[in-house]
């Protein structure tokens, strides 16, 4: 068989609508210096981020994919002062009813204040980016919650029990507590560190996936 006239035109033969000049093979001196400098900074920066990922609890910028297969199970409580002393009340599904500053009951949900990450309560869920990451994020969320529910004039403290099952092992219970809240309508006053919050480095060390 003999070749017929081609149906596709080689790239090199195609007409150019807007021809451009390629840079000369060696460019100018400054351009060359910038290329090498940029590349060096980029590579060294990436290596530094990867090698120091251990120092960040979530290993951010370290490309540690699927670092754990841990799960967490959250149970939220709120502590209320009663005449007989402090009482711990379980919060079902992240929503509760509390007396507001004007004395009327208000319906409040965790998800209004903390829509993301999407944590679920009273059910086992995957600990994205590892158990230590989740514990730290949950502690931050709890601190945030304590200062962002002005309509709750009743709760003195939020407590979160977290059952952590790390890579299929037996579950270990962690208790996270929010700062103490005032109940005079001016929410958001941080109490000094409670014994629980002082324990934070302990779980980080015990459960730290990295």
């Amino acid at each position: 068989m003999a070749p017929a006239p081609g149906t596709s035109v080689p790239c090199e033969k195609r007409p150019s609508i807007r021809p451009r000049e390629s840079p000369p093979p060696h460019g100018n001196r400054w351009s060359n210096v910038h290329r090498v400098l940029f590349a060096a900074i980029w590579v060294l920066g990436q290596l530094a981020l990867i090698l120091t990922a251990n120092r960040r609890v979530d290993g951010a910028f370290g490309f540690r994919m699927f670092n754990e297969s841990s799960t967490i199970k959250l149970t939220l409580y709120r502590e209320i002062d009663r005449p007989g002393g402090r009482e711990r009340v379980r919060v079902e599904g992240g929503a509760w009813t509390a007396r507001g500053p004007d004395g009327t009951p208000r319906r409040i949900t965790w998800y209004e204040r903390i829509p993301r990450p999407r944590w679920v309560f009273d059910a086992e869920m995957h600990a994205s980016y590892g158990a230590a990451t989740q514990l730290e994020r949950l502690q931050n969320a709890l601190d945030y919650l304590a200062t962002h529910v002005p309509e709750d004039d009743e709760t003195r403290r939020f407590v979160l029990e977290v059952a952590v099952r790390r890579n299929g092992r037996e579950p270990v219970m962690h208790r996270l507590t929010s700062p103490e809240r005032t109940t005079n309508g001016t929410n958001g006053e941080h109490a000094s560190n409670t014994p629980d919050s002082q324990e934070r480095p302990a779980w980080a060390a015990r459960d730290g996936g990295r």
Binding site: R14, S16, I17, R35
Partner: peptide, 22 residues
């Protein structure tokens, strides 16, 4: 249509390759 010349500096491509490997 393909712009001519299609050729250009490839150092960025090498960096991208390095990033994939990293």
């Amino acid at each position: 249509s393909v712009l001519l010349p299609r050729r250009g500096p490839f150092w960025g491509v090498r960096l991208a390759q390095l990033q994939v490997s990293l």
